[in-house]
């Protein structure tokens, strides 16, 4: 199924990827080709086959409720693009 430039723009917006029209046009062609490849899946009948989301058939391991991680804020914020008073800074958020 070919993908339109508009669809690319929508997905790019959903994925927060800035994209100018030329780039969207370029990706529309490439994504259409990839989807064409992907749609070869439809050649195989999967009726009645249970989806497999994980290579293991293991159950989730549950951890004891213990605090073992302690404050490392200074190390973590040393690599932050913008932090002040211990807070990460972002442009004003309006709810």
């Amino acid at each position: 199924m070919p993908i339109t430039r508009e669809q690319v723009a929508h997905i790019a917006r959903l994925a927060r990827l800035a994209m100018d029209p030329a780039e969207a046009e370029f990706h529309a062609g490439q994504l259409s080709r990839i989807l064409e490849l992907v749609e070869q899946m439809n050649r195989i009948d999967t009726t009645g086959v249970a989806p497999m989301s994980h290579p293991q058939d293991a159950a989730l391991r549950l951890r004891d409720d213990r605090v073992t991680e302690h404050n490392r804020r200074d190390q973590y914020q040393r690599i932050a693009p913008a932090a002040e008073h211990g807070l990460y800074l972002v442009p004003r958020v309006i709810e």
Binding site: A12, L14, V38
Partner: peptide
């Protein structure tokens, strides 16, 4: 901020896969 950071930070192949994945 999100869109520019990610638009500048990721290369074409990564963007392609992110978009296929989101789609």
């Amino acid at each position: 901020l999100y869109a520019k950071t990610r638009g500048e930070g990721f290369g074409a192949e990564v963007k392609r896969r992110i978009m296929i994945g989101a789609y």
